[in-house]
Protein backbone atom coordinates (compact mmCIF):
# COMPACT_ATOMS: atom_id res chain seq x y z
CA UNK A 1 0.00 0.00 0.00
CA UNK A 2 1.42 3.35 -0.96
CA UNK A 3 1.11 4.89 2.44
CA UNK A 4 3.80 7.24 3.52
CA UNK A 5 1.53 8.64 6.17
CA UNK A 6 -2.05 7.68 6.71
CA UNK A 7 -4.05 9.37 9.39
CA UNK A 8 -7.76 9.03 9.51
CA UNK A 9 -10.20 10.64 11.80
CA UNK A 10 -13.83 9.70 11.69
CA UNK A 11 -16.17 10.39 10.22
CA UNK A 12 -15.98 13.58 8.15
CA UNK A 13 -12.37 13.50 7.05
CA UNK A 14 -12.62 9.96 5.80
CA UNK A 15 -10.17 9.11 3.01
CA UNK A 16 -12.89 8.83 0.38
CA UNK A 17 -13.65 12.55 0.51
CA UNK A 18 -13.18 13.79 -3.07
CA UNK A 19 -10.83 16.63 -2.19
CA UNK A 20 -8.49 14.61 -0.08
CA UNK A 21 -8.98 11.78 -2.56
CA UNK A 22 -7.74 13.54 -5.70
CA UNK A 23 -4.08 12.98 -4.87
CA UNK A 24 -4.84 9.40 -3.87
CA UNK A 25 -6.78 8.82 -7.12
CA UNK A 26 -3.80 10.08 -9.09
CA UNK A 27 -1.40 7.98 -7.04
CA UNK A 28 -3.48 4.89 -7.87
CA UNK A 29 -3.62 5.72 -11.60
CA UNK A 30 -1.54 2.74 -12.68
CA UNK A 31 -3.92 0.41 -10.92
CA UNK A 32 -7.23 1.73 -12.29
CA UNK A 33 -5.82 2.24 -15.74
CA UNK A 34 -4.63 -1.38 -15.87
CA UNK A 35 -8.02 -2.54 -14.61
CA UNK A 36 -9.66 -0.59 -17.43
CA UNK A 37 -7.32 -2.07 -20.02
CA UNK A 38 -7.87 -5.55 -18.61
CA UNK A 39 -11.65 -5.21 -18.86
CA UNK A 40 -11.41 -4.04 -22.46
CA UNK A 41 -9.01 -6.85 -23.32
CA UNK A 42 -11.15 -9.47 -21.62
CA UNK A 43 -14.26 -8.27 -23.40
CA UNK A 44 -12.69 -8.41 -26.85
CA UNK A 45 -10.79 -11.60 -26.18
CA UNK A 46 -14.12 -13.36 -25.90
CA UNK A 47 -15.64 -11.87 -29.02
CA UNK A 48 -14.95 -12.78 -32.62
CA UNK A 49 -15.67 -9.30 -33.95
CA UNK A 50 -13.71 -7.59 -31.20
CA UNK A 51 -14.13 -3.86 -30.95
CA UNK A 52 -16.48 -3.90 -33.96
CA UNK A 53 -19.25 -4.92 -31.58
CA UNK A 54 -19.17 -1.38 -30.18
CA UNK A 55 -20.16 -0.09 -33.59
CA UNK A 56 -22.41 -2.90 -34.72
CA UNK A 57 -25.09 -2.51 -32.08
CA UNK A 58 -25.81 1.21 -32.63
CA UNK A 59 -25.42 0.76 -36.39
CA UNK A 60 -28.07 -1.97 -36.49
CA UNK A 61 -30.34 0.02 -34.18
CA UNK A 62 -29.85 3.05 -36.41
CA UNK A 63 -30.86 1.04 -39.47
CA UNK A 64 -34.01 -0.26 -37.82
CA UNK A 65 -34.99 3.11 -36.36
CA UNK A 66 -34.38 4.88 -39.67
CA UNK A 67 -36.46 2.32 -41.54
CA UNK A 68 -39.33 2.23 -39.07
CA UNK A 69 -39.52 5.68 -37.49
CA UNK A 70 -37.98 7.57 -40.41
CA UNK A 71 -40.71 6.20 -42.65
CA UNK A 72 -43.42 6.78 -40.02
CA UNK A 73 -42.43 10.40 -39.45
CA UNK A 74 -41.45 10.96 -43.09
CA UNK A 75 -37.91 12.01 -42.24
CA UNK A 76 -35.12 12.33 -44.80
CA UNK A 77 -33.04 9.16 -44.17
CA UNK A 78 -29.77 10.95 -44.91
CA UNK A 79 -30.44 13.39 -42.08
CA UNK A 80 -32.37 11.09 -39.81
CA UNK A 81 -29.85 8.22 -39.76
CA UNK A 82 -26.92 10.28 -38.35
CA UNK A 83 -29.35 11.92 -35.91
CA UNK A 84 -30.44 8.52 -34.59
CA UNK A 85 -26.88 7.17 -34.60
CA UNK A 86 -25.57 10.10 -32.53
CA UNK A 87 -28.43 9.60 -30.08
CA UNK A 88 -27.90 5.87 -29.81
CA UNK A 89 -24.13 6.01 -29.27
CA UNK A 90 -24.62 8.54 -26.49
CA UNK A 91 -27.33 6.39 -24.99
CA UNK A 92 -25.08 3.36 -25.25
CA UNK A 93 -22.52 5.28 -23.19
CA UNK A 94 -25.12 6.27 -20.60
CA UNK A 95 -26.50 2.73 -20.45
CA UNK A 96 -23.11 1.00 -20.16
CA UNK A 97 -22.04 3.50 -17.55
CA UNK A 98 -25.21 3.10 -15.48
CA UNK A 99 -25.47 -0.67 -15.68
CA UNK A 100 -21.76 -1.21 -15.10
CA UNK A 101 -21.70 1.14 -12.15
CA UNK A 102 -24.30 -0.79 -10.17
CA UNK A 103 -21.78 -3.61 -9.78
CA UNK A 104 -18.61 -1.53 -9.76
CA UNK A 105 -18.11 -1.50 -5.98
CA UNK A 106 -19.75 -4.83 -5.27
CA UNK A 107 -17.41 -6.64 -7.63
CA UNK A 108 -14.44 -4.67 -6.34
CA UNK A 109 -14.98 -5.87 -2.78
CA UNK A 110 -11.85 -8.06 -2.70
CA UNK A 111 -9.73 -5.06 -3.74
CA UNK A 112 -11.45 -2.69 -1.31
CA UNK A 113 -10.81 -5.11 1.54
CA UNK A 114 -7.12 -5.37 0.72
CA UNK A 115 -5.90 -1.90 0.00
CA UNK A 116 -7.11 1.50 1.22
CA UNK A 117 -7.41 3.06 -2.22
CA UNK A 118 -10.16 5.64 -2.86
CA UNK A 119 -13.33 3.74 -3.72
CA UNK A 120 -14.21 6.17 -6.52
CA UNK A 121 -11.57 4.55 -8.72
CA UNK A 122 -13.83 1.52 -9.22
CA UNK A 123 -16.76 3.43 -10.79
CA UNK A 124 -14.09 5.36 -12.71
CA UNK A 125 -13.02 2.07 -14.28
CA UNK A 126 -16.62 1.45 -15.41
CA UNK A 127 -16.88 4.95 -16.84
CA UNK A 128 -13.57 4.70 -18.66
CA UNK A 129 -14.51 1.42 -20.32
CA UNK A 130 -17.82 2.91 -21.50
CA UNK A 131 -16.12 6.16 -22.50
CA UNK A 132 -13.49 4.42 -24.64
CA UNK A 133 -16.28 2.65 -26.57
CA UNK A 134 -18.04 5.97 -26.88
CA UNK A 135 -14.88 7.64 -28.21
CA UNK A 136 -14.53 4.99 -30.90
CA UNK A 137 -18.07 5.52 -32.16
CA UNK A 138 -17.79 9.30 -31.92
CA UNK A 139 -14.61 9.12 -34.01
CA UNK A 140 -16.53 7.24 -36.67
CA UNK A 141 -19.32 9.79 -36.54
CA UNK A 142 -16.80 12.63 -36.80
CA UNK A 143 -15.17 11.03 -39.85
CA UNK A 144 -18.63 10.64 -41.38
CA UNK A 145 -19.46 14.27 -40.61
CA UNK A 146 -16.21 15.53 -42.18
CA UNK A 147 -16.80 13.36 -45.26
CA UNK A 148 -20.32 14.72 -45.76
CA UNK A 149 -20.02 18.32 -44.56
CA UNK A 150 -16.34 18.99 -44.78
CA UNK A 151 -14.20 20.09 -41.81
CA UNK A 152 -15.74 22.65 -39.48
CA UNK A 153 -14.30 24.70 -36.62
CA UNK A 154 -17.37 23.63 -34.62
CA UNK A 155 -15.76 20.20 -34.33
CA UNK A 156 -13.28 21.82 -31.95
CA UNK A 157 -16.12 22.07 -29.44
CA UNK A 158 -15.74 18.30 -28.96
CA UNK A 159 -12.44 18.99 -27.17
CA UNK A 160 -14.52 20.66 -24.45
CA UNK A 161 -17.61 18.48 -24.69
CA UNK A 162 -15.98 15.05 -24.52
CA UNK A 163 -14.24 15.69 -21.17
CA UNK A 164 -17.64 16.89 -19.93
CA UNK A 165 -19.16 13.57 -21.01
CA UNK A 166 -16.42 11.77 -19.08
CA UNK A 167 -16.90 13.88 -15.95
CA UNK A 168 -20.69 13.47 -16.08
CA UNK A 169 -20.28 9.73 -16.47
CA UNK A 170 -17.88 9.45 -13.54
CA UNK A 171 -20.05 11.49 -11.18
CA UNK A 172 -23.15 9.52 -12.17
CA UNK A 173 -21.40 6.15 -11.84
CA UNK A 174 -20.00 7.09 -8.42
CA UNK A 175 -23.47 7.87 -7.06
CA UNK A 176 -24.93 4.82 -8.77
CA UNK A 177 -22.28 2.42 -7.50
CA UNK A 178 -22.62 3.59 -3.89
CA UNK A 179 -26.42 3.42 -3.96
CA UNK A 180 -26.17 -0.13 -5.35
CA UNK A 181 -24.11 -1.13 -2.30
CA UNK A 182 -26.65 0.19 0.17
CA UNK A 183 -29.76 -0.78 -1.78
CA UNK A 184 -29.37 -4.06 -3.64
CA UNK A 185 -32.50 -3.45 -5.72
CA UNK A 186 -31.09 -0.18 -7.02
CA UNK A 187 -29.83 -1.86 -10.17
CA UNK A 188 -33.37 -2.84 -11.18
CA UNK A 189 -34.73 0.58 -10.37
CA UNK A 190 -31.97 2.31 -12.34
CA UNK A 191 -32.73 0.11 -15.36
CA UNK A 192 -36.39 1.14 -15.21
CA UNK A 193 -35.45 4.82 -14.79
CA UNK A 194 -33.09 4.53 -17.75
CA UNK A 195 -35.81 3.02 -19.91
CA UNK A 196 -38.18 5.81 -18.91
CA UNK A 197 -35.55 8.45 -19.71
CA UNK A 198 -34.80 6.84 -23.07
CA UNK A 199 -38.33 7.43 -24.29
CA UNK A 200 -38.53 10.86 -22.65
CA UNK A 201 -35.37 12.12 -24.34
CA UNK A 202 -34.96 12.95 -28.04
CA UNK A 203 -32.66 10.01 -28.70
CA UNK A 204 -34.52 8.45 -31.61
CA UNK A 205 -37.30 10.99 -32.04
CA UNK A 206 -36.66 14.51 -33.32
CA UNK A 207 -37.44 17.29 -30.79
CA UNK A 208 -39.46 19.18 -33.39
CA UNK A 209 -42.01 16.39 -33.21
CA UNK A 210 -43.07 17.45 -29.73
CA UNK A 211 -42.39 21.14 -30.14
CA UNK A 212 -44.87 21.37 -33.00
CA UNK A 213 -47.51 19.97 -30.63
CA UNK A 214 -46.71 22.43 -27.83
CA UNK A 215 -44.96 19.79 -25.71
CA UNK A 216 -41.43 21.16 -25.87
CA UNK A 217 -41.29 21.17 -22.06
CA UNK A 218 -40.86 17.37 -22.18
CA UNK A 219 -37.27 17.77 -23.27
CA UNK A 220 -36.35 21.44 -22.80
CA UNK A 221 -35.47 20.92 -19.10
CA UNK A 222 -34.04 17.48 -19.70
CA UNK A 223 -30.25 17.74 -19.23
CA UNK A 224 -29.63 14.63 -21.32
CA UNK A 225 -31.15 16.38 -24.32
CA UNK A 226 -28.66 19.24 -23.93
CA UNK A 227 -25.82 16.79 -23.43
CA UNK A 228 -26.84 15.16 -26.71
CA UNK A 229 -26.82 18.56 -28.35
CA UNK A 230 -23.13 18.98 -27.45
CA UNK A 231 -22.53 16.13 -29.86
CA UNK A 232 -25.21 16.75 -32.43
CA UNK A 233 -24.63 20.42 -33.09
CA UNK A 234 -21.00 20.17 -34.23
CA UNK A 235 -21.36 16.79 -35.94
CA UNK A 236 -24.73 17.11 -37.62
CA UNK A 237 -25.07 20.86 -38.14
CA UNK A 238 -21.46 22.16 -38.01
CA UNK A 239 -22.55 24.53 -35.25
CA UNK A 240 -21.17 25.29 -31.82
CA UNK A 241 -23.47 24.33 -28.94
CA UNK A 242 -25.45 27.28 -27.55
CA UNK A 243 -24.57 28.94 -24.21
CA UNK A 244 -27.87 27.63 -22.82
CA UNK A 245 -26.87 24.07 -23.69
CA UNK A 246 -23.44 24.49 -22.12
CA UNK A 247 -25.09 26.07 -19.09
CA UNK A 248 -27.52 23.20 -18.67
CA UNK A 249 -24.78 20.59 -18.99
CA UNK A 250 -22.38 22.43 -16.68
CA UNK A 251 -25.17 22.94 -14.15
CA UNK A 252 -25.97 19.24 -14.27
CA UNK A 253 -22.30 18.40 -13.91
CA UNK A 254 -21.99 20.67 -10.88
CA UNK A 255 -25.07 19.16 -9.27
CA UNK A 256 -23.88 15.63 -9.96
CA UNK A 257 -20.39 16.42 -8.66
CA UNK A 258 -21.85 17.84 -5.44
CA UNK A 259 -24.17 14.87 -5.11
CA UNK A 260 -21.38 12.33 -5.64
CA UNK A 261 -19.20 14.18 -3.14
CA UNK A 262 -22.02 14.26 -0.58
CA UNK A 263 -22.90 10.59 -1.12
CA UNK A 264 -19.30 9.37 -0.95
CA UNK A 265 -18.52 11.44 2.14
CA UNK A 266 -21.66 10.49 4.01
CA UNK A 267 -21.17 6.79 3.32
CA UNK A 268 -17.38 6.67 3.69
CA UNK A 269 -17.43 5.15 7.17
CA UNK A 270 -20.02 2.50 6.41
CA UNK A 271 -19.32 1.48 2.86
CA UNK A 272 -16.66 -1.17 3.44
CA UNK A 273 -18.87 -2.87 6.04
CA UNK A 274 -21.82 -3.09 3.65
CA UNK A 275 -20.00 -4.89 0.85
Amino acid sequence: MPISELTHEPPKAAPTGPRSGLAAIWAARHFWWHLTKSELRARYRRSYLGILWSLLNPLLMMLICTLVFGTLWREDPLKFAPFVFSGLVTWEYIGQNTNGATGALLYAEPYIRQAPLPVVIYPLRTTLVAFIHFLITVSLLTAFSVAIRGPSHALLSLCVSLPMFLALGWCASTVNSILAVFFRDWMYLSTVCLQFLFYGTPVIWPPELLESRGMGWVYIWNPIHHTLQLLRRPLLASEWPTPFEYGMVLGTLLLLALLSRAVSRSTARKLVFRL
Partner: peptide, 12 residues
Protein backbone atom coordinates in the same frame (compact mmCIF):
# COMPACT_ATOMS: atom_id res chain seq x y z
CA UNK B 1 -6.47 1.96 6.77
CA UNK B 2 -9.09 -0.36 5.30
CA UNK B 3 -11.64 -0.09 8.12
CA UNK B 4 -12.45 3.48 9.09
CA UNK B 5 -12.99 3.99 12.83
CA UNK B 6 -16.26 5.27 14.28
CA UNK B 7 -14.28 7.38 16.74
CA UNK B 8 -10.66 7.91 17.64
CA UNK B 9 -7.67 8.46 15.40
CA UNK B 10 -5.46 5.94 13.61
CA UNK B 11 -2.04 7.10 12.50
CA UNK B 12 0.11 4.79 10.43
Amino acid sequence: GIYPPLSGVVTT
